[in-house]
Write a protein that binds this DNA or RNA. Structure first.
Lengths: 300, 300
DNA sequence: GTCAATTACGTTCTCCGTAAGGATG
DNA sequence: CATCCTTACGGAGAACGTAATTGAC
């Protein structure tokens, strides 16, 4: 029933239709003339009727050949379009990639990566969501994001995740603060100091809380949403804060001191999270490679 | 460049997409599982990328596979539609055939043939033009007719023509006319009788003129367009006429006498005329076969 | 007699099926 | 350890190219 038709036969048909000459059509198809005859014969068998009327002198389309002629053109065009499209996606001349990332990553690390990506693959549409971890994962679940950059949290079993790098914590304080003179900070050093906190929903806060678990720090009473606000409060001497390296740009703007924590274990891992058992699109793979290229050197 | 893609590969793709299982998809394609794997591999090579992500447990579409999936469906559908259409034309479930014929043929012989054709092939659109010979040939030239039934005339070299049968001439007259008692008429018998003529543009007239070339017949002064008018005039005793057998029905309606001419050579050949070096459509071939089946027995 | 499509025929190559291999849960 | 996709391999059939044949002008 389902006769097997190959594009080769369609190309042969079009070549013969246009040349009206077996020998020349065979040349155009890079094949010998008898082989070409066989292809036409095979196509005619599939069609169930002669498509060309021919003798040794003339080759003309039959009425059925004329009917087939119109459709053959569009079959070829559609097939070529399909594979050309596919080649565009493979070459990242077309496509789409959507990233969701923590605000700290979205603001600082990602823009340069995205800029390079767009330079390499201008045809691919890139979208970026900056959101807190839970919302990033929700976007991933809803397929509104392909890649998520975040720090570890609860319920990551649902996804695939890989460590991209780790983001060490720093103490930030005024340059005239007593702790500003230290080269390294241990959590215990913070005992008795007022701490400006981010909201509990932020991943930075969750890691900071772990760091401060056994420390008698004084809560400043400030618990704000944005790092820029933390920076403003710290600059006014209203407290110090613990933030990851990737957010330091916010504090450097105000000429605050940033001192690394002594313990290297006290870092916030940065993960790339994807949906489980699903392949990244080629566009997204390219983005991931670029992210790894940029982030890895920062870590080591 | 032009990669050769066969429908077989597209069917394999769809089968695997729907079953998500190589072994079952292979069964659906009536092939062994390794052969099926090879087909998928070949399609992926043509696409330039993996279309399925698979391990021993799961088979899922890649993002590129999803893209291809949509287009594969329509490629298959278009190809099937093309060949199904062709099968319809071959089986004369669809198509078109246009006949142009002399009025005498169109009125009497053809309706029954066309009726049978429509019964056999109800899907084929049949059109019929009744016109004089020159106009029939003009329709053929303009491709508004596929088949012409007419009598020989000038400039038939432009076309292909075949004799279908021959239409012997009859004398028609009132039953009380002196000639009505004869069993056979020779042209000479008409000497002195008034003749009712068709217009000179008709093929009947042209053959009648040849028959009367050497006869001192009296022109009645009537030269009319339609056979029905000839019949009316003859019925009123205003003359006799010479007409081919196929037109006699017009005269029998009025209970007139019709006597065959003695000389069998004095017949009007009936030709089927087609365009030179062009194939008849399958629909038209069927019509021609039916015409030959009906006309041949009349002749012999 | 020449040009061109078809047929004949031997070779090559692709495709297929069986059987073994390997990965995964 | 059972499932199932892949690789290996040998054989069958298709496709191809060269050469001979047929046919039309």
């Amino acid at each position: 029933m389902a006769t097997n038709i190959s594009t080769k036969l369609l190309y042969a048909f079009v070549a013969l239709k246009e040349t009206r000459h077996f020998t020349r059509a065979a040349e155009r198809c890079h094949t010998s003339q008898p082989a070409f005859s066989a292809m036409i014969r095979k196509l005619e068998e599939a069609a169930g009727t002669r498509l060309f009327e021919r003798d040794t002198r003339n080759v003309t389309l039959t009425p059925e050949g004329k009917l087939f002629s119109e459709v053959a053109r569009s079959l070829i065009a559609d097939t070529e379009a399909a594979f050309d499209d596919m080649a565009d996606y493979v070459a990242r001349r077309r496509g789409r990639v959507s990233i969701a990332a923590l605000p700290s990553l979205a603001a600082r690390a990602l823009p340069a990566i995205i800029a390079e990506y767009r330079r390499l693959y201008p045809g691919v549409a890139v979208s970026l969501h900056d959101a807190l971890s839970d919302q990033c994962l929700a976007l991933l679940r809803q397929r509104k994001a392909d890649l998520v950059l975040t720090a570890p949290g609860a319920n990551f079993n649902e996804f695939d995740s890989r460590v991209l790098g780790s983001d060490p914590f720093y103490l930030v304080c005024r340059r005239d603060h007593p702790l500003a003179k230290k080269r390294r900070i241990r959590p215990g050093d913070l005992a008795g100091h007022e701490i400006v906190h981010l909201a509990k929903s932020s991943s930075v806060r969750q890691y900071a809380d772990i760091l401060l678990r056994d420390v008698a720090a004084v809560h400043s009473g400030f618990e704000v949403e944005h790092l820029a606000t933390v920076a403003g409060l710290v600059e006014q001497g209203l407290g110090v804060s613990l933030v990851p390296q990737l957010t330091l740009f916010q504090f450097r703007l105000l000429d605050l001191a940033a001192i690394p924590l002594a313990s290297q274990e006290q870092t916030r891992p940065i993960l790339v999270v994807t949906r489980k058992d699903e392949t990244l699109s080629i566009a997204a793979q390219g983005m991931l490679e670029l992210i790894e290229k940029h982030v890895k050197p920062v870590e080591e």
